[in-house]
């Protein structure tokens, strides 16, 4: 019936009591800062001054729609500049802006629209002036069999057709709204998603008969959805700006990557993925 531990046990538990929460807290807190970055920049080599051989690493915060293209561009860049390392953090442009303004370690920001880049400019976090490097237009996306026989934008307004759009709060939704206005088409969506991925998900799974996403998104899914281009898409062209974040520790490398994206080689890769000229 011994309830109380011996004094030895008591001492041990006291030590544990004092040390454990401290360890716990440091363990919890130390994981937080790197979570937002896709691998921090190499601090040892960060002092590279312009004119010298490029070295070290940078983290590029880029819109989710750039994932495939930018990953391939980084491979090319690292190949021509051995010893450099480009890491990425891909997410929605507005999420990335929030993260950067809250101090996330970004060296370059590539946005899917000018509005989000403007927010960063307004926060005085951009080095120089952002440069547009690509554009994108909307496309209708339908499941492979095209069960609802969609062939034009007007078909999306037909009753009984289940259309999924982006909400107007996000760029793809704003673009869809513009196109609707320009063509006087009134689409009644069954759902207004927060991002392109969720729209595509509903089209791929066949839940929706059609969705409005970007041309590059359709191309990126391969054969999982079929794209139907439409003429009025040019009423809402989305421009992609890129800029170096002025808190960068490796400006030389960041600027070099910006320039590479805008170079002929960069433009060729972007065009292959379905992006339009800037």
């Amino acid at each position: 019936m011994r309830i109380f531990p011996s004094s030895g046990h008591l001492l041990t538990s006291a030590v544990v009591a004092v040390v454990a929460p401290a360890l716990l807290l440091t363990a919890c807190s130390s994981t937080t800062p790197p979570a937002t970055s896709g691998g921090g920049p190499g601090s040892a080599a960060s002092g590279a001054s312009p004119g010298q051989e490029l070295s070290g690493g940078i983290t590029v915060f880029a819109a989710a729609s750039l994932k495939a293209t930018f990953t391939s561009l980084a491979d090319q860049f690292q190949h021509t500049h051995p010893g450099t390392r480009i890491s990425f953090s891909f997410a929605g442009s507005s999420d990335l802006v929030t993260q950067i303004t809250q101090g996330a370690p970004a060296d370059v920001f590539a946005s899917a629209d000018t509005a989000n880049m403007d927010k960063l400019v307004k926060a005085s976090l951009v080095d120089g002036t952002p440069a547009n490097f690509a554009s994108n237009v909307l496309s209708i996306a339908v499941p492979p069999g095209n069960p609802a026989n969609i062939s034009s934008l007007q078909d999306l307004a037909k009753p009984g057709v289940k259309v999924v759009l982006c909400a107007v709060q996000v760029p793809c939704g704003a673009a869809a709204h513009k196109v609707e206005d320009a063509t006087r088409t009134k689409i009644s969506p069954v759902s207004e998603e927060s991002n392109v991925t969720d729209v595509l998900g509903k089209v791929i799974s066949g839940e929706a008969d059609a969705g409005l996403v970007y041309a590059t998104d359709v191309k990126g899914t391969g054969t999982k959805v079929k794209g139907i281009p439409f003429a009025a898409a040019d009423k809402a062209v989305n421009h992609y700006p890129i800029a170096t974040v002025n808190t960068t520790k490796n400006k030389a490398l960041a600027d070099a990557f910006d320039a590479f994206v805008q170079s002929d080689a960069g433009q060729k890769t972007l065009a292959a993925a379905g992006f339009g000229a800037p």
Partner: peptide, 27 residues
Amino acid sequence: TLTFAGSLQGVTRTLPLEIYLQRETDP
């Protein structure tokens, strides 16, 4: 909810989904 039901005002857009969406434009 987001995966299965979608997001439409008054039909499927519950408070957490509204918060998630509002964050895009108006933190």
